[in-house]
């Protein structure tokens, strides 16, 4: 029994080294004074300063943020509706097609989604005259579409775990269906809705392939900007940008983790309390 954990722990160490050495190296080289991004030339924070002076980067980041906020919100609304429909309405016309439509985008290669959406927008512009220009609107529409199914997945799995009888209890106590939805269903699944939103937000703010297809001239999101720079090679200001991202995400994840752990502790304490008061 004791030889295997040693091997497993070795693999864990190897795996985490594999995960984090590239990222740590990237962070380190963001403080590199040299213009050659991969050769150490002394410590400096000049790339950060340069980054914040670069209007293009700021502009792209703001556009990305705007798209992500809007598309995550709409994706959450639509995705939650779908999740509820799939979990609570057993029979309706076209249920099979709908369940196909919410799983297909999960496995669809982004390139295909990208060219398909672009062709749709071009043909729509030609036949309906809308969207006249590609950019903010088309990117947002595409992001809503392919991130809403992730929200659906999260909400749906929460819904099928939830006890249906609490909804029935609310009906039994005189609530109309929409009151049940407002008072019971939505509050109970709200954590899932929130994680769905977070997922949709990160998917949107991280997307490069689909955005790159459906965007128009002058509308550069941050990932598109990075993409076009990275294609030309490694540059130190991207290292700085990457470091900022990693730090923001890292802080977010640590906060979330601590909150979760505290909630878990509270739950345990509550259970002990319930046990102690047992009649």
């Amino acid at each position: 029994m004791n030889r295997r954990p040693l091997f497993l722990i070795g693999m864990l160490c190897f795996g985490f080294a594999f995960f984090y050495i590239p990222i740590l190296s990237m962070i380190l080289f963001s403080f590199n004074d040299s213009r050659l991004a991969t050769v150490w030339g002394g410590f400096s924070t000049k790339w950060y300063a340069e980054l914040f002076r670069n209007d293009k980067v700021i502009e792209a980041a703001l556009l990305s943020l705007r798209i992500a906020l809007i598309s995550a919100t709409f994706a959450t609304i639509l995705g939650t509706m779908t999740g509820i429909a799939m979990a609570r309405f057993r029979r309706f016309k076209g249920r099979t097609l709908l369940s196909g439509l919410v799983t297909a985008p999960l496995v669809m290669p982004e390139v295909i989604t990208g060219i398909a959406s672009l062709m749709l927008f071009i043909l729509m512009a030609q036949w309906l005259g809308w969207p006249a220009q590609r950019g903010f609107t088309t990117i947002t529409l595409a992001h809503i579409t392919f991130s809403m199914v992730f929200v659906t997945t999260v909400v749906h799995s929460r819904m099928i775990q939830a006890d249906v009888s609490i909804e029935e209890a609310a009906v039994d106590l005189g609530s109309k269906p929409w009151q049940v939805l407002r008072d019971i269903t939505l509050p109970v699944i709200s954590p899932a809705i929130f994680s769905g939103w977070l997922l949709a937000f990160t998917i949107s703010i991280d997307d490069v392939v689909i955005s790159n297809f459906v965007t128009g001239p002058g509308n550069t999101t941050l990932p598109i900007l990075i993409w076009s720079k990275v294609k030309l090679g490694v540059t130190p200001d991207i290292n700085a940008l990457a470091t900022i991202t990693v730090v923001i995400v890292g802080i977010g994840v640590i906060i979330a983790g601590t909150l979760l752990q505290r909630a878990e502790k509270r739950r345990l304490r509550d259970e002990r309390m319930a046990y102690r008061d047992n009649l």
Partner: peptide, 26 residues
Amino acid sequence: MLVILPFWTSFLLRVYAWMGLMGTNS
């Protein structure tokens, strides 16, 4: 948490991190 962390950072930047490591004079 450490497994999930890279998952939340940008995909593009993770690829980029390796470009930094694999280049001929890294």
